[in-house]
Structures are given as structure tokens and as C-alpha cells.
Design a protein around this nucleic acid. Sequence first.
DNA 1: TAGATTGTTAATCGATTAACAATC
DNA 2: TAGATTGTTAATCGATTAACAATC
Lengths: 213, 213
Amino acid sequence: MNKFNKKIPYGVIERLPAYLNCLMQLKKESVTTVSSKRLGRLTGINAAQIRRDLIYFGKFGIRGVGYEVHTLIKKIQDILGADKFHNIVVIGAGNLGAAISNHDGLKNHGFIVKAIFDNNKEKVGREINDIEISDLSDLKKVINEEKIKIGILATPSEAARKSAKALIDEGVRVILNYTSIIIEAPKDVIVYNSDPVSDLLYTLYYFTSKKSM
Amino acid sequence: MNKFNKKIPYGVIERLPAYLNCLMQLKKESVTTVSSKRLGRLTGINAAQIRRDLIYFGKFGIRGVGYEVHTLIKKIQDILGADKFHNIVVIGAGNLGAAISNHDGLKNHGFIVKAIFDNNKEKVGREINDIEISDLSDLKKVINEEKIKIGILATPSEAARKSAKALIDEGVRVILNYTSIIIEAPKDVIVYNSDPVSDLLYTLYYFTSKKSM
DNA sequence: TAGATTGTTAATCGATTAACAATC
DNA sequence: TAGATTGTTAATCGATTAACAATC
């Protein structure tokens, strides 16, 4: 719900991170102002749609000028909740877990990796990106002490279901699932699945038979 | 376009990999038949929608019985083009590149990683998952020799734009972009962006203010 | 003022879902 | 046959986009 008390379409929320990402790159290039037209060209999204999306939340632009990059970043961060810090945990200290833990963007958007868990005793105690790898058996303790609500699942598939259950049982409410296991969760838990194979298969459809996108 | 010569909604194609993934898990559990109702419960997708999605491509079910798992897998693989082998390359031999190259699902769906590229001379010559790491300067040669049309971009952000350009210039037509860099590509190149931060930000919206999904 | 671009409407387009006849 | 579930329709719901007045 927004200030007009209207339900926001999913598509709108899905596009906001894309706008934000684009705006942050523009900011890095010292661009101060951007029109919906330009933002549209950069993100591949229709300019009218960008304006439509934004006015769900307020009038952030200046007619005849465009949007101030800095202001729009603040507004979108505020809408998404990315203006606050969020403690997260990563399950799995393999390549994937390490890649995610090292991701610059997390820090830039206020996500703080509080712990990385693994059940491999050899890895426990080592560090990834200055974060110590903890034993999976300490999951419960850490989640409760740090009041963690967001978890990233980056284990091998075999371990995924058990870890997901542990996260949910301890009160985690958002799970980013990077395994190909299907996670069954109660309605108040948000599970977001991300799988390179699904992404590839999706694009493959449009590729293999030269269907237009 | 399908056999009825009607345009297939994007949403349908997006859901097919989810069905496929679910079906393959069912097959592993030796389930032979599944109803749209059960598939719906497992994937979180409305049963009517599953049936609707599938008949865009043909009548794959048996009234009163459901869908034969094995048959439906074949059909969906055929639709997506996942019944053939596809050579791919991965750019970036860091944690992310390694994680993707090691991903079981790739092999299961016919994707063969032909080469992993990196510009770090120390990594070149080593192996990940039995695939030798090649020097980025050999990209052109490999892509042309192996007629690679699919590339996965898993480099640090700084290197992404240059690598993307190289891929496109040499004829790659599908790019899975795992960096947060925006890639500008001609219309006949399909770029699919996947970024853990965008995924987190999206879920964050529904989480932070207890908005219903 | 002239040019540019937002905010906003309204028309179009596309997606979802309930319902049920067909049929296994 | 009775029960189950698909295939299919049609109504509803939601998303996209062109167009343009408002206004910087």
C-alpha cells in the first residue's frame, strides 16, 4: 500500500531496484539529472512506464527538467526500505556463498552479512571477506542474538531443505534461495528463488527458435 | 510463436523452468504422475494457470489422471530448447564463476561449459570442475572455434563492460549478466540480468512494511 | 517565450482465474 | 458408474503505453 492506499503492482516493485541500480551508476558518473527518456533507454524500460511507476509513490520529478539523481535514489531507497541497515546470514561457505558474501552491492545497500555458516569443520573458523565462518550448529544462537530476519541459502542442494527449515524455525522471514530445491514455507515467509539454470532456460526459449521477445 | 501461431505471454515462458525443475524433483522421487493441483501446490502457482500455460503448446495431460511426469519433462524441454546441447562460456574465474561452472543443473539441462576465462595470469591454466581456465585474450578464438552463442558474465563489475562488448562482438547472442553493470546490447542480443542485491531489494519491500504480497 | 519533460488520463493490451463440460 | 482432472471458455483483473495538458 502507498500513500494513496492503492495496491502497487508487483511489476512496479520489481523495476524499482533496476532504476536504483541505474541511478547509482549515473551518480558515480557525476550525472545530476536524468529524464525518464534517458533512464528508459538505459534500463530498457518504457519512459511512460517509469513515470507511471514513480508517481505511485509521489511526485519526484521536475517538469521540463527531469529527475534529480540524488533525490530519486533517496526516494527509491526509502520506498524499498534500503535506507536502513539489515543484518543477514549466508548459509554455505562454498564458492557461491563466498561470491555473495563478497558482493559489494550488499554493503552499498545496507545489507550486513553477520555470519556465514557451513557444516564443513575444516572451513569453520576461517574468514571470507573478514567474516568468520561459523558452524551450522550455531545457526540458532546467532539468528536469535542478532535478530536476523533475512537469510541467503547458498548450500549444495542436498543440504538446502534442512537449512531452510532451520532458518524458518528460528524466525527468518525472507529467504533468498540460490539452490534448485523447492522450499515450502508458511505464508508469512517470503521465499525468492534465483537459479542460473532457470534464467538460462528462459532466455533459451527466445534464442533457439528466433522468437521475438 | 507456437503451433497455433499465437504469441506466448512472457509469464508463461518464465514459469516453464519452474515446472521443469519441480517435475525433475518429482521424477527423482519416483513420482510418475502429477495433477495440476499438486504441481500448483509445489510451485506456488495456480492450478488453472498451469493448465492454461501448457495448452499453449499442446494437450499433454490425461483427463481424470493428470500429467505423466516423464512425458511432461520431455515436452517442456522440447519447448524451451533444453533437449539439445548448448555450449557456453563463463567469463570470470572468481568465486561466482566457479560456483556457476560447478552448478549441477547446467549439465542436467544440456549446458556444457566449454571454457572459463580470466585475465589473472595466476589463474590461467588451473582447472575448475575439470575445465581449464583460459586467458581472456583467447576469448575470440574459442568463441569462433566452438561457435559459442551463450555467455555468462561473472566478472568483477569493473571488467564487465569490456567483457560484454567482446562477447557481443564475437557473435554471442545470449548473455546472462551476474554483474550489476548495465549492458547495452543490440536488439538481437538477449541480456538477462541477475543480481542478488536486486532480488533482496525486491523482497525487502514486502518485508519491511508488512505489505501483503 | 520556446523547448522540454513531468504528471495523468484513458484506451489498449495482456494475464489470471473461476467455472464447467469433456472425458479418462 | 462415480470420481477425478484436464482442456477451454469467458469474465475479471491488472499492466502497459500513447497522448497531451500542465508547468518547469
